[in-house]
Amino acid sequence: MHVILAQPRGFCAGVVRAIEIVDRALERYGAPVYVRHEIVHNKAVVGGLRARGAVFVEALAEVPPQAVTIFSAHGVARAVEADARARDLRVLNATCPLVAKVHIQGRLYAAAGRVVILIGHAGHPEVEGTMGQIDGRVLLVQDEADVDALDLPAATPVAYITQTTLSVDDTRAVIAALQRRFPDLVGPDVRDICYATQNRQRAVRELCRQVDVLLVVGAANSSNSNRLREIGSESGIRSHLLADGSELDPAWVAGAATVGITAGASAPEAMVEHVIAALRALGPVEVSAMDGLEEHVEFKLPPELAGRAA
């Protein structure tokens, strides 16, 4: 079996920064440190940090007063920030800078008197945080049908923003639907969608031209990982999402001469290696990496944690 690895794949700069914030907080302040929501959507990452003393909670009511508290990479609503101040928590904000950029865009549009439309998935923590960061009216749409169902006059001044981990193609279609309905529409270019989302989707489309089966390493609750699997299926390739090699079903790769592997932005490379090991248990495997973009993006840490060895 020939295994081709997508390039790029796996961790993005926002995930690296978020994990390092928890790492350094544990080094500097000692255990426990509290993290609101999973720092990133990956059980292996969360489990490793939990073993070192990170405590993951869904509500700040679970955090003792004055405790070191980290907001996840997905971002939080202003009400959560206010609650943290009221409880006198020592907050370290691991919100991805690209998510924070969306918050700023949305606030600027709302301040200009526009109804803000957020393109995203209902219930996703990033969506909940973004909607709670913007004063004024924010409406959530997931697809073109939602756009058609909006109860707004056509002349309404409207602006759109997007969840960072969405499909570029799906977002483009929803934006086109908004343009058809609302003549007074402004918003960022689709190029402002997270660079890592775009790069990994582009790489998967290229990879699918070369393989019989696609394996996407990532968590079931990871939006960007699920979208990579969907892109594979839309390309006509048998595509499967798995957290690690223990979830590999031999039937998925039976008879496949070439298998492609990619990983979502919150999946560590160790999980990719685990999947390769599971494939090797089925028979001889030759591994190569496709030519692709090398990412060199880095985001600064909070000043309280800067300057210490990771």
Rank of each mutant, 00 (worst) to 15 (best):
A309Y: 01
Y29C: 04
V285T: 06
E273T: 07
I21G: 06
N42T: 04
V213G: 11
P32K: 05
A82L: 14
S72K: 06
A59F: 02
L215E: 03
M271L: 15
P8D: 01
L139N: 07
A309D: 12
E273K: 10
A256G: 08
Y160F: 14
T95H: 07
F56E: 09
R191A: 15
V297Q: 13
V190I: 14
D143Q: 11
V116H: 09
A265M: 09
L98N: 03
H74I: 11
L98F: 14
P268E: 00
R209K: 15
M131L: 13
S235G: 06
I119R: 07
P188I: 00
H296N: 15
E144W: 09
D135A: 14
L60S: 11
R114F: 00
M271E: 08
A177K: 08
I119L: 14
G53A: 03
A112L: 13
P183E: 06
S225W: 10
G106F: 11
A79H: 06
V285M: 08
V80G: 01
G10I: 02
R209V: 08
A243C: 07
M271A: 03
A31W: 02
S239L: 10
G218T: 00
P268N: 05
L89M: 09
E38P: 02
D143V: 06
A310Q: 11
A25R: 03
L293C: 01
D192L: 10
E230A: 15
I231L: 14
E58H: 14
T164D: 06
W252Y: 09
A176V: 01
G307E: 04
L228C: 00
T164G: 10
D170F: 01
Q105D: 15
T162S: 15
I39T: 01
L301Y: 12
C96D: 00
I231D: 07
A6G: 04
Y195S: 05
M290N: 00
E294V: 15
A44R: 04
P268A: 02
E247T: 02
A263E: 12
G10T: 01
G136P: 03
V216W: 10
T69G: 08
H240Y: 15
V22F: 01
G14W: 03
A159G: 09
G307T: 09
A54L: 02
A267R: 11
L5V: 01
P302M: 07
R17W: 00
D291M: 04
E144R: 13
V275F: 13
A51I: 01
A112F: 13
Y195Q: 07
Q133N: 05
M271H: 04
V138H: 08
I276R: 11
C96L: 07
A111S: 15
D88W: 13
F11L: 03
F299K: 04
L152V: 10
A278K: 05
A79Q: 13
A257N: 11
R52S: 05
G264V: 07
V76M: 09
A306V: 06
G307H: 12
A278L: 12
P64I: 03
S246V: 07
A256F: 04
A203H: 05
V91H: 05
D291I: 05
S266I: 04
R172L: 12
E304T: 12
T262V: 03
D212V: 10
G292V: 13
I175D: 02
A82Q: 15
E294P: 00
A159M: 13
V68T: 13
A278Y: 08
V211D: 05
V76W: 04
